[in-house]
Amino acid sequence: MRKITQFRPGGSLVLVLFAVYMLVPLLATLNFSLTLGENYTTVAYEKLLRNEALFEALWHSLLLATLTVLGSLILTLPTLYWVQLKLPQAKPLLEFFTLLPFIVPPIVMALGLIRIYSSGPFPITGTPQILVFSYMMVSLPFMFRAIDNALQSIDTHTLTEAAQSLGAGTFTTLRYIIIPNILPGIVSGSLLVFSSALAEFALANLLVGSAWTTFPVFVSNVGRADGRQAAALAVISFVITWLVSITILWSANRAPGQNNISLNR
């Protein structure tokens, strides 16, 4: 007789099938990228490494992801602190704004963004700036949730009052008291934003395209011309995703209660 709570019909089989489904495409892709007919070859990787555009695109994406994280932090952190402290009644409004990017697909947002920012006072379509701003918008939910969770888990009010009773101003309190205390949440949110900015394709392709190529756009352009290089690029992308995800997991373990889910679609 088994313990009643250990009831799991076909549990192991389910898990094995899941692992197969998740791993076979990865292994098949690795194999595909390394074979030519019956022979083993690294020609796809060599071609890629000789392509300067690859490094340029990688650099663009890293820069973009970093700027997005910084922008998102500057926008979200003081606002949330302020709301927590002075304007708790404004919370639902902020939550509405952070829910929108979840519901409205990036492709839909791209439509309006092109209209507004192609001409007029801010003609930034086709430049990296529009990507930074729109990525900040798309990844707002991740940063917002992470920092909000962190702020909720510390007693912001008492900490602030204690700091101010010792003579600290708002900026000093934020810089020396609040930020160090919610650092795990900040790191966790930043990594999620970073990872989603690194992999974003729809907005980059529609808003900027080849004017300033990001890594996913490069992958798409090169990959559609050459299947073997496409497989090699998928492998490289997977390695990058894997590295970022492992870092996210590691940081989430150090910040209990933090999310580790972002969406790339």
């Binding site: 495409p25 992999a199 998928a234 995703t241 995800s245």
Partner: peptide
């Protein structure tokens, strides 16, 4: 987190 263009290419290779 592995979605989008690279995933599509991985499935083409599979």
């Amino acid at each position: 987190n592995f979605a989008g263009v690279p995933l599509a290419f991985a499935f083409v290779a599979t």
